[in-house]
Simulated scan of single mutants.
Amino acid sequence: MNIPQTSNASPPPRNALAAIFENSPWQHAIESVARELFLGKAVLQSAEYGDRWEVIRREDMSTVDWLRLVYRDATWVTQVNGVMAEQATGRMSGVPTSSSTMPSLVVRMLEAAEIREDDKVLEIGTGTGYSTALMCHRLGDGKVTSIEYDPVVAARAHDAIQAAGYAPTLAVGDGLAGYADNAEYDRLITTCSVRYIPVPWIWQVRDGGTVTTPMAGWMGGVAFAHLTLDDAGNANGRFLSDDLYFMTARPHLPHPLASTLMPRGEPRESRIDPRILDDSTGLFVAQLGAPSAQRAGLGDETILLDVATGSQASTRKAEGGGWVVQQHGPLRLWDAVEDAIGIWQQAGSPHQSGFGLTVTPSWQRVWLGDVDGPSWDLPA
């Protein structure tokens, strides 16, 4: 087991971590909230493979080593495939389903939401409860509502938040439906990424209030949205310059891919270099063009698949230079990707922050440059 090592120095105090946030309005909360309460008795760290995890148990470490681990500016996985870290009997395989996010990322999220002392906040995704406690410390218990989908995660968060001395409104349920009982909210933030903005969120935020959430599509492209509600009940805003994202909300995850993907269709020359999808913004733009597609492969050999229709597109390097694409099925996935990438490149290939999002009760649209620019509908 790769347990972090320590020197003879004393463990770093909470204010050593808080020093990272000097001059931030969240510095005192970081200093005051004991992160060790929210990590439980064990955490998981990545083993030699990306989907393999090994457990680090509190009981196997000295207090000094455990506190050094706790007060790193690091993300610690607390659940994989619904199994809590303390329940792990050995190495695990799977996808993280809950974690204690690195404090600097938590604070970036809170700062991006522009939360002020008098704001009433709804948090989607309680997780370990650490960010919930930070908000309680700064805003007061009565200003904070948090909802968690997983009842086991929610129960542990409840105990940790209570042990830290806070008593916000905590609910167990589908965060994509928000929490109407305490509406209206000044700020809605999420600790999960979503594919589109759930309409109940904009119903539960006051006019002039904001929704701040990472977004992630089925190809893996991400963007960080900050939207403001207008008096007509619509939300408008731009994606932020931070490349910030969290685990995707479980109902917004893509469908499982087929085990075999075979290139089919008449080959033609690709209008774009498939390696543009290895760029984070390029992938985000490609996803706008083909939002129902999932991506397999990297670089020259990229495969796109739409599970619902069976549509596929695959690329490969041509012998004489350039790239060849083959497509089949009712959706011409690569055609749509080429069109979107072409529009983006003609605009100078801006970062995601060059795009914005408009959300109404009946449609959601990402636009480039301004609201009258080129646009793509999200699959709401």
Rank of each mutant, 00 (worst) to 15 (best):
P361T: 07
H158S: 11
T132L: 09
E111D: 09
P374H: 13
H252Y: 13
D372A: 14
Q364D: 03
T78K: 03
P151M: 12
D335V: 03
T6N: 10
V307D: 00
T89A: 12
D370V: 00
V64A: 05
I276R: 13
L188P: 14
F246L: 05
F246G: 09
Y149N: 06
D73R: 14
I3D: 04
G299E: 11
K41A: 15
S7I: 05
F239L: 06
W26N: 06
G50Y: 03
T212Q: 08
A18I: 11
A155S: 11
F224E: 14
A154Y: 01
I303M: 08
T360Y: 15
P361F: 08
W376I: 07
R35E: 01
E269S: 15
S10W: 06
A167K: 09
P379M: 10
R68S: 13
S46E: 08
L240I: 00
D243P: 00
Y179P: 03
I161S: 02
A171K: 06
E123S: 01
F246H: 10
A113I: 12
L304K: 06
I147D: 10
I189M: 00
I343F: 02
V359G: 08
W203M: 07
T126N: 02
M247K: 08
A85I: 10
P96V: 02
G220I: 01
R57E: 15
G320W: 07
G175W: 04
E117K: 12
Q45I: 15
Q294H: 10
S353D: 14
P25L: 06
G321M: 02
M215Y: 00
R108K: 04
R268G: 04
D231H: 09
I161F: 08
D118Y: 03
G373Y: 02
R187C: 11
E31G: 03
G217T: 02
Q364C: 07
Q5D: 13
S349P: 02
V70T: 15
Y130H: 00
P256Q: 12
N81G: 13
D300N: 12
S349R: 07
Y245G: 04
P361M: 13
S292F: 04
S292P: 04
R138V: 10
P13R: 15
A235V: 15
R275D: 06
E22L: 07
G237A: 09
A160E: 10
V121N: 00
